[in-house]
Amino acid sequence: MARQIKLIWDFRGPASAKTAEHHEIHLKEFIAIEQLPISITGFEVTNEMHAIAFIVVNDEQMIPMRDALKPHRGELFMP
């Protein structure tokens, strides 16, 4: 199985949870428009002042997705 990378967008402040949740909607829209074989997206609330939205891509998809979507950071995805 190919290595998977979690591309992450960080949101901070009191509205971070709602912003991350909304950003995931845009990630799903991008996947649908581009007809990409990506099924893992999400958002997580770290605390009341920090939340993330993310998308999980295969290693070979990472560079084109990084360049197109401009995530803040990435990490190896361990299901």
Score class of each variant (00 low, 15 high):
residue 5 I to P: 04
residue 5 I to K: 13
residue 6 K to G: 06
residue 6 K to F: 07
residue 7 L to P: 01
residue 8 I to G: 02
residue 9 W to C: 02
residue 9 W to N: 08
residue 10 D to S: 13
residue 10 D to L: 13
residue 10 D to K: 14
residue 13 G to C: 10
residue 13 G to E: 12
residue 14 P to L: 12
residue 14 P to D: 13
residue 14 P to C: 10
residue 14 P to I: 15
residue 15 A to P: 01
residue 15 A to Q: 14
residue 16 S to N: 11
residue 16 S to C: 15
residue 17 A to D: 13
residue 18 K to H: 09
residue 18 K to M: 12
residue 19 T to P: 00
residue 19 T to W: 01
residue 21 E to F: 11
residue 22 H to T: 15
residue 23 H to T: 07
residue 23 H to M: 03
residue 25 I to H: 00
residue 26 H to C: 06
residue 27 L to E: 05
residue 27 L to P: 02
residue 28 K to H: 00
residue 28 K to W: 01
residue 28 K to M: 10
residue 29 E to C: 00
residue 29 E to S: 04
residue 30 F to T: 08
residue 31 I to G: 01
residue 32 A to P: 00
residue 32 A to V: 04
residue 32 A to E: 08
residue 34 E to H: 13
residue 34 E to Q: 11
residue 34 E to M: 12
residue 34 E to G: 00
residue 38 I to S: 04
residue 41 T to Q: 00
residue 41 T to V: 09
residue 41 T to H: 02
residue 42 G to C: 05
residue 42 G to A: 02
residue 42 G to M: 05
residue 43 F to E: 02
residue 43 F to V: 04
residue 43 F to C: 03
residue 44 E to K: 12
residue 44 E to Q: 13
residue 44 E to R: 09
residue 45 V to L: 07
residue 45 V to Q: 15
residue 45 V to W: 04
residue 46 T to H: 11
residue 46 T to A: 14
residue 46 T to R: 10
residue 47 N to P: 03
residue 48 E to T: 10
residue 49 M to T: 08
residue 49 M to K: 09
residue 49 M to Y: 15
residue 49 M to I: 06
residue 51 A to C: 07
residue 52 I to Y: 05
residue 53 A to Y: 03
residue 54 F to M: 06
residue 54 F to Y: 15
residue 55 I to T: 07
residue 55 I to K: 08
residue 55 I to E: 08
residue 55 I to G: 06
residue 55 I to N: 06
residue 57 V to R: 01
residue 57 V to K: 02
residue 59 D to H: 12
residue 59 D to T: 08
residue 59 D to Y: 11
residue 60 E to Y: 14
residue 61 Q to P: 00
residue 62 M to R: 11
residue 63 I to M: 09
residue 64 P to I: 05
residue 64 P to T: 07
residue 65 M to D: 05
residue 66 R to G: 00
residue 67 D to G: 07
residue 67 D to H: 08
residue 68 A to Q: 09
residue 68 A to C: 05
residue 70 K to F: 08
residue 71 P to M: 07
residue 71 P to L: 07
residue 71 P to F: 03
residue 72 H to G: 14
residue 72 H to E: 10
residue 75 E to H: 02
residue 76 L to V: 14
residue 76 L to P: 00
residue 76 L to R: 01
residue 76 L to Y: 09
residue 77 F to Y: 15
residue 78 M to L: 10
